[in-house]
Computed example of a mutant assay.
Amino acid sequence: MRKSGASLESVPELIARWTAHLGLSVEAKPAPSGDEEAFPNRLSVSGPDAGWLAADRGAGLDALQFLVHEAQGEREDHKLAYLDVKGARLFRMQEVMAMGRFAAEKARELGSHTLGALSARERRWVHLVVSREEGLGTESEGVGTFKPVRVFRK
């Protein structure tokens, strides 16, 4: 088991320091997601250079988040910091959870409904939203990083 490293409270300072070494001016502040079970410990990254992190489908933000998670040394979702720029990830969470609710409605009506390929985090959101519905289940199908999710009546 990995030892804990940087605390959640120290992450905003780490982000500011690391991005400053890259010549970027950004800051990170805690910002509620509205659903802490689905998107815990959201840190909103803003500043004149925050857009650079969001460019190329958030590749820079993904890299920075990976480094933050490594510095934290945790593997439990509720203890890790999750970065967001301009609310893009929050919007995606809301969008995927709405897709999950739609799939739940279709599964009740038709018996099952399959959503297209989703990332691991997106699949987790669908599993979470459907788990809140009585009489329905979910399963990821296939192999690989991006997989479809089937919602079905139990």
Rank of each mutant, 00 (worst) to 15 (best):
K3W: 11
S4A: 15
G5Q: 02
A6D: 03
A6Q: 10
S7P: 05
S7V: 03
S10V: 05
V11N: 05
P12T: 06
A16W: 02
W18M: 12
W18Y: 13
A20R: 06
A20F: 01
S25N: 09
E27H: 04
E27P: 04
A28P: 02
P30N: 01
P30D: 01
A31H: 15
S33T: 10
G34A: 12
D35Q: 01
E36L: 08
A38T: 12
R42Q: 11
R42M: 12
R42P: 02
S44K: 09
S44C: 01
S44T: 04
S44W: 03
V45I: 15
V45W: 06
G47T: 09
D49V: 09
A50L: 14
G51P: 01
G51V: 06
A55G: 03
A55E: 11
A55K: 05
R57A: 14
G58S: 02
G58K: 01
L67H: 02
L67D: 09
V68A: 11
H69I: 01
E70H: 13
E70L: 14
Q72M: 14
G73R: 08
E74G: 10
R75D: 00
E76G: 09
D77K: 07
D77T: 06
H78F: 14
H78I: 07
A81K: 04
Y82G: 11
V85M: 00
K86A: 15
K86V: 15
K86H: 14
R89W: 11
R89F: 05
L90Y: 04
R92K: 10
M93Y: 14
M97Y: 00
A98L: 10
M99Y: 00
A103G: 03
A103T: 08
A103M: 04
A104V: 08
A104C: 14
A107W: 13
R108L: 12
R108I: 03
E109F: 07
H113A: 04
H113Q: 09
H113N: 04
H113K: 07
T114M: 02
T114Y: 01
A117D: 09
A117Q: 01
L118Q: 06
L118Y: 07
L118C: 10
L118W: 02
S119A: 08
R121H: 10
R121E: 12
H127E: 06
L128Q: 13
L128P: 03
L128M: 15
V130A: 14
S131Q: 10
R132L: 13
E134H: 14
G135T: 08
E139M: 05
E139C: 04
G142V: 03
G144C: 07
G144V: 11
T145D: 15
F152T: 00
R153T: 11
R153K: 04
